[in-house]
Design a protein around this nucleic acid. Structure first.
Lengths: 117, 117
DNA sequence: GGGCGCTAGGTAGCGGTGTCAACTAGTCGG
DNA sequence: CCGACTAGTTGACACCGCTACCTAGCGCCC
């Protein structure tokens, strides 16, 4: 029964690093592409350097962004294709993206310096 | 009760950003200073660009680092001063710091690019 | 027809960790 | 004696990425 011991899981660092930045990355993709739907965001984010994301991560996130008024969504139905929900930035979303980008580069710089020996 | 509404809290982004990097920052301080105790780390981290941290954040973290074998601790008692627990890096801690630093700068660069419009 | 795989969206529960708040206890100055 | 500072500790809480699972429509190939 594998004593279990003090075993602790500690997920990948990068999963932790994504917290609080992934939403900005999604806003940035929407800023570049104008609009996108959940499944296409998975590909765009992978292209942007964030591979391996799954629906279970992105769909709840899009819901939160909509709750916060940072994106708007619209269902589209077309023949020969599954229904898609397209998302687009709101003005508030654009502002949060701009502020978040500044905050991130500031934090990333401070952190990189803090890690130097 | 308490109307509650749809109110959602969304803490400061920087709190989220700290998750997953703060442990590396602590290891970096220990690498620079040789050894330190919890309360002094609060000052060192503030000097290093991470102000506003509290005991409730740092002490549990130090416990986890010790559980993971990345630091060692030793209690010291001296006349005229409260008991202090000094922490120092282990070889494993030094290695985790080195790997984490590389991983961080890679991630930070990728993320900064992903946020560009 | 029947099975497979892709697209597209969604939910439930888990786990790690920073935050806040509160607590103990020792030292020193007035 | 009383406050302020140092030093460490604990518990409840919120957030959010992760895994795992589910539905449904479409095209393809045997």
């Amino acid at each position: 029964m594998l004593g279990g011991m003090g075993e602790v899981v500690r997920p990948d660092r990068e999963s932790q690093w994504l917290k609080g930045v992934l939403d900005l990355a999604v806003l940035a993709v929407l800023a570049r592409e104008g609009s996108a739907y959940g499944y296409s965001l998975l590909r765009s984010l992978a292209d942007a350097g964030l591979p391996g994301l799954r629906g279970g991560t992105v769909y709840p996130l899009l819901g939160r962004l909509e709750d916060d008024g940072l994106v708007q969504s619209e269902w589209t139905v077309a023949d020969g294709a599954p229904a898609r929900r397209y998302f687009a930035l709101t003005p508030a979303g654009r502002q949060v993206l701009a502020e978040g980008r500044d905050g991130w580069s500031s934090f990333a710089d401070r952190m990189t310096r803090a890690l130097e020996v």
